[in-house]
Every structure is written in structure tokens, then in C-alpha cells.
């Protein structure tokens, strides 16, 4: 009797679960499955886009993948640099955005204004805003001139050379200096993450902090014992987003290589193969990292 009831409940839950995710299933099957599959299929074919009947596909098996890994001299090195940069930047962006979100969550004068300013990178790094100035060919040629003109002298360069020539020169210093040099890029790249962290922080109940304070918790302790565990699920979101965002940024060498293969050489098959190798690698990285972090992320269930 009790067993049957439990089975009923499980079935009811399964049905309810499917009802909840139904919009996704419908949208995915109707609109995204075919594009995904056809792009995957393309990677095993040679595509003739300039023929008379539109696109014609010829099955050539793994030849494209062979070219990606063993023939194309740029792909693998670019991929490795990209992954190295990712390992460098993603932790930086995550720490920076978390730190900023904690600061912006505090109460101070002009908070709305500062928050609005930190929202600007979200806009400036999205959609057409990225390429607006570089699309204008005249402007971009001028920009190189201007940059060459202004970057000759700087205090930070001198400081950097002093720090690096001293005895304390180490890999860690190099890492910090790399990050500091890129602080504008990091600030621009972490707008979304700051907002995700902020909204995560807002869902933590103040009564928890109150209770902790009454028990004699210092701010430092309640940060690590309350804020950090409660926000950990959002750290996972931000990690996934940051990795994907960093990897699919259209101005990296690898993405330029992929788009050039498409738009300059019209090699659809090869482009698809390059993209899919890349996606699979990113998904693998995400899978491994999520697997490691999920054990440590605090969930109620």
C-alpha cells in the first residue's frame, strides 16, 4: 500500500517535472534540434555553397577533423593559447566580480549611481556595441595611431620593470601584473557576473546575519560561514557563464580563425568541425569543473 503510494508520488512528480520543462522541450525540438544536428552533420561533409542548387553536401567522414588536428597549423596552437588565457582570466574575473558585488551590496551614499555605472559594462560588451567602432574602418586605422602615440611612457610600465627585475620576480608576480594590466578588460567582462552575484546576495535573509551577530560572529566569520555558502550556487553559474563568455568572445585568435575559415574560404564543413571540437572541449571543461564544484556547493537538497 505504502509502496504503491510512493510509486504514485514518484510518477506524479515525473509528470509534473515534464510539465515544468515542457516549454524547453518544445522549443528545443521545434527550433534548435535541426540547426544543431545539421551543423554537426556539416562537419562530416564537404559543403558546396556556391553550386546551382544552393547547398550540396558530400559525405567525407572524418577528413575535416583530420585537417583540424593534424593539417591546419594554426588551430591547435590557438586552442592551447585560448585555454591558457582562460585559466588565467576566469579566476580573476570571478574573484573581482564577487568582491565588487559584496561591496555594492553594502549600504553607502550613492549606491544606486555606482550600481548603474557597473551595469554599463553589460551594455558595452553586448551585441553590436562591441564592434561599433572597429567596424568603421577609418576609425580603427586611426585608433592604432592614437594608441601608438599615447602608450610610450607610463608609470606602471616602470613599476613593472622594477618589480620584475628585483629578486622577488616570480611567476605569481607576473600573474598579478598581467591581471592588473588587464583591469579594464576584467571590469568590462565582469558586469554580468556582478549582477548575478548581487541578486544572489539579495536572496540571503538578513535574519541569518542577525542571528550570527548575536551569537558573537565577526563580520569576517559571517562572510565565510553565511555569505560564501549561500552564494556558492551562483559561483557555479558565474563560472559557467564566464568560461563560455570568454571562450566565445569573437575577438580572440581562435574565434577569428574560425570565422575567417567561414567567410573568407567558405569552408563550411571545416568551420563546423573546428567549432564542434571547440564546443566539446569547453563542455568537457565545464563538466569536470562542475563535477568538482558541485560537491562543495551548498544546496538544501
Amino acid at each position: 500500500m505504502a509502496k504503491a503510494k510512493r510509486r504514485d508520488l514518484a510518477r506524479g512528480n515525473a509528470i509534473a517535472g515534464y510539465m515544468f520543462i515542457l516549454p524547453f522541450i518544445i522549443g528545443f525540438v521545434l527550433f534548435l534540434l535541426i540547426p544543431l544536428v545539421s551543423s554537426l552533420y556539416m562537419s562530416f561533409t564537404e559543403v558546396d555553397a556556391l553550386g546551382k542548387q544552393g547547398f550540396t553536401y558530400t559525405w567525407i567522414g572524418l577528413k575535416n577533423y583530420n585537417e583540424v588536428f593534424f593539417i591546419n597549423e594554426k588551430y591547435v596552437p590557438n586552442l592551447l593559447t585560448q585555454l591558457k588565457n582562460m585559466a588565467l582570466f576566469v579566476p580573476g574575473i570571478l574573484v573581482f566580480s564577487f568582491f565588487m558585488a559584496v561591496l555594492l551590496n553594502q549600504d553607502f551614499h550613492g549606491r544606486t549611481f555606482v550600481r548603474a555605472v557597473y551595469f554599463l559594462p553589460v551594455i558595452l560588451s553586448s551585441g553590436i556595441m562591441v564592434g561599433l567602432e572597429t567596424n568603421n574602418s577609418l576609425l580603427s586605422s586611426m585608433k592604432d595611431l592614437i594608441e601608438a602615440d599615447t602608450s610610450s611612457v607610463s608609470i606602471t610600465k616602470t613599476l613593472e620593470s622594477i618589480l620584475l627585475t628585483g629578486q622577488s620576480a616570480s611567476k605569481f608576480f607576473q600573474y598579478v601584473i598581467d591581471l592588473v594590466n588587464q583591469v579594464y578588460d576584467i571590469a568590462i567582462a565582469s558586469g554580468i557576473q556582478i549582477i548575478i552575484f548581487l541578486s544572489g546576495l539579495q536572496t540571503i535573509s538578513p535574519s541569518m546575519y542577525e542571528a550570527a551577530k548575536i551569537e558573537g560572529c565577526t563580520a569576517w566569520e559571517s562572510f565565510w560561514k553565511i555569505t560564501f555558502p549561500m552564494i556558492s550556487s551562483m559561483i557555479l553559474v558565474n563560472m559557467v557563464y564566464t568560461i563560455v563568455d570568454f571562450c566565445t568572445k569573437s575577438n580572440s585568435d581562435l574565434m577569428t580563425l574560425i570565422t575567417n575559415t567561414l567567410y573568407m574560404n567558405f569552408e563550411y564543413g571545416l568551420t563546423a568541425a573546428m567549432s564542434w571540437v571547440y564546443f566539446v572541449i569547453i563542455m568537457g571543461i565545464l563538466g569536470i569543473l562542475s563535477f568538482i564544484l558541485t560537491r562543495w556547493v551548498y544546496y538544501y537538497d
Binding site: G17, Y18, I21, P23, Y241, S275, I282, L286
Partner: peptide, 28 residues
Amino acid sequence: LVGYGFARYKFPLKNFWFGCVILLIVVP
């Protein structure tokens, strides 16, 4: 709706569908 479904309910093929969500995030 979909996020709630994935967070709280157990149903067959859940991991497969969630894999599709991740694919959707990764593919630009």
C-alpha cells in the same frame, strides 16, 4: 518554469535534457 522543473523534480532523461541546456549555453 523550466529552471524550477530542473531544480526540484526527478524525472526520466533529466540529465539528457539538462545536457541540452548546457549545449545551448555553450554553442554561440
